[in-house]
């Protein structure tokens, strides 16, 4: 079954001269895989995820999702995306926002489904409060809820654990692990390596737009204390090589 195929993708911006943020990236992620995309800040993780969900387009190369392209409406109906620090319509309530998203997916009677999702992300108590009154953790969980509303086949999460307190992180991690149990394909951007090690089947490490490693967390950690140690070593090696 088709999953995510990225072939020779390069993304170049022309601001302040030509600047490539992703360089010749090739990745194949089969269905049912939880893929962790790691890299330091500015490595090209968010640029890659934006191209995967159709917010931007590759300068070169191709992206295939579920056998189509990110611009296909039929493909978009089967993916979920949670951006980094999601921003909402502040004057709507959490429930109203999810109703709005459900209508975009043309769900006829979404109320029961919305209630279930709100409970699963622990927002049932705040569903009728305006979003502008939500805490950072609540916004992250609402971001996750809107990404799950269509029961997606592929879920893209951009730094879903970023900025959360330990309790909030544990809650969101629990939800992601439950999705993994259900066999969802998850593309997961993060720089919190302990969580990635726990959640992901396969990881890719990107630095300065170049994919420098691609393997299971266990394989990458061989000969190192843990994944974090391996990550630092791989980045240092790659920078020496390209210096």
């Amino acid at each position: 079954m088709h999953g995510i195929t990225i072939q020779n993708v390069t993304k170049t911006y022309l601001t302040n001269g030509e600047h490539s943020v992703v360089k010749n990236l090739t990745l194949e992620i089969p269905m049912g895989t939880v893929f962790g995309f790691l890299g330091p800040n500015g490595a090209g993780k968010t640029s890659t995820i934006k191209m995967l969900v159709g917010l931007s387009r590759p300068t070169e190369g191709t992206i295939s999702l579920l056998g189509g392209t990110p611009d296909d409406i039929s493909v978009r109906a089967r993916i979920g995306f949670m951006p980094e620090s999601p921003a909402f319509y502040g004057y709507l309530t959490g429930k109203e926002f999810l109703e709005f998203i459900a209508k975009i997916f043309k769900q006829a009677h979404p109320n029961h489904h919305i209630e279930e999702i709100l409970k699963s992300v622990d927002l049932g108590h705040a569903k009728n409060k305006q979003i502008r009154t939500y805490s950072k953790g609540m916004l992250q969980r609402l971001g996750l809820a809107q990404a799950l509303i269509n029961n997606p086949d592929i879920l893209f999460l951009d730094e879903p654990l970023d900025g959360l307190d330990p309790l909030g992180r544990a809650e969101v991690k629990k939800i992601i692990l439950a999705l993994k149990e259900q066999g969802k394909t998850i593309f997961f951007n993060s720089h919190i390596l302990a969580d990635v090690e726990e959640i992901c089947d396969v990881v890719g490490i990107i630095d300065k737009g170049v994919l420098v490693a691609h393997d299971t967390p266990q394989s990458l950690s061989i000969g190192h204390k843990d994944l974090e140690d391996a990550f630092v070593h791989i980045i240092e090696q790659s920078r020496k090589q390209y210096a």
């Binding site: 409406i73 039929s74 978009r76 951006p83 809107q146």
Partner: peptide
């Protein structure tokens, strides 16, 4: 402005919508 700068569009554009 809210859609573009505060990035609420990021939640809408990847949905099945033109």
């Amino acid at each position: 402005y809210k859609e573009v700068e505060q990035k609420t569009f990021f939640l809408i554009l990847p949905k099945p919508i033109r």
